[in-house]
Simulated scan of single mutants.
Amino acid sequence: MAKAAITVKKLHYTYPNSTNEALHNVSLTIKEQEFVAIIGQTGSGKSTLVSLIDGLIKPSSGELNVVAGLEINATTKTEYLSKIHHQVGFVFQFPEQQLFAETVAEDIAFGPHNLGWPAKKIEKAVDEALKMVDLPLELKSHSPFALSGGQMRRVAIAGVLAMDPQILILDEPTAGLDTQATNDLLKLIKDLNEKGTTIIMVTHQMEQVAYYANHVIAMSNGQVVADTTPQQLFRDAQRLKKLSLTLPVSVEVAQFLSKDGITLKNTEPLTLDVLADEIAEAMRRKRK
């Protein structure tokens, strides 16, 4: 049975100079090597939750245990939080906007350099990170600003991966990318997960939740309102409607076909490929 990578207990958070809680009594567990999608409308508490997991802010009350027993609570000292950053990588929305160095290699090496790694270890980490994001080593000497948008985002992600985090948080990682760059980036994230990295992805895209996640956390008004699997979540169209979220196209089409008298064995096909197979099977059954 997989161990817990993150445990959140009765977490509360109120931003400075505010009287409204951004998070209220949040408890959850994320296991090692899970691919977790965190969903909800703007202002639901998603970004606050992942900022707490990464140690960017400290809870007002409650606690988090993050990999290997590292604990964050209201009294945690700021210098202790750097231990969290060694284990948890955070890829912000539009991470390419945070690129700054003259070369790709310098940008990727920034994090390891700040951790005090020796030069040979940093060089090896840079090369391995570029390979992980499927970029050629020849780009090391190039300016990151001369790359395509998708390549720039990969360089930014490589800078996080170079520190070898056990957990990778991504905030709307495909925002602003074209279809090909989106598919390539999601494949990269899926590959990292299959190699053992715990993934936490904040997203509004239900197709991405359906296709990639095995655990989904839905938030509303600073609270967790669903902590389940994609299959379970998408069975409850009314709950999604209340959360102002939509069904994946494949599930929506399956429900439409059911109302039209075409019964599928899998009533919540999470991808279009699965839906196509289900329709083909239903047609074969009908012809018999």
Rank of each mutant, 00 (worst) to 15 (best):
K124I: 11
L233Y: 05
D127Q: 12
A237F: 08
P269Y: 02
G40E: 02
I30A: 04
N214T: 05
E79Q: 13
E138Q: 15
P59L: 07
S82T: 14
I217Q: 02
D191F: 01
P118H: 03
D134V: 08
M219L: 10
L137Y: 00
T7A: 09
S148Y: 10
G222T: 10
G40Q: 02
Q87S: 11
R154T: 04
A218F: 08
K187N: 15
S250M: 07
M201N: 09
L115F: 13
I157G: 00
V88E: 03
V253A: 03
D236G: 01
E194D: 13
F100V: 15
I169P: 01
I200L: 12
Q41F: 06
P230C: 05
K259F: 01
E128M: 13
P112K: 04
V88L: 08
K120I: 10
A162C: 00
Q223C: 04
R285K: 14
A146V: 09
K124H: 11
P173K: 10
A280N: 14
T228S: 10
F100T: 08
T271W: 11
T263W: 11
A282N: 08
E128H: 11
F92W: 11
G116I: 12
G111M: 03
G69C: 02
P16F: 02
T14N: 03
E79T: 12
T29K: 10
L11F: 05
D227I: 08
I108F: 08
G222N: 06
Q180Y: 13
M283N: 04
A129G: 09
K120F: 04
Y13V: 10
Q255F: 10
D54L: 04
S27K: 06
A158N: 09
E106Q: 15
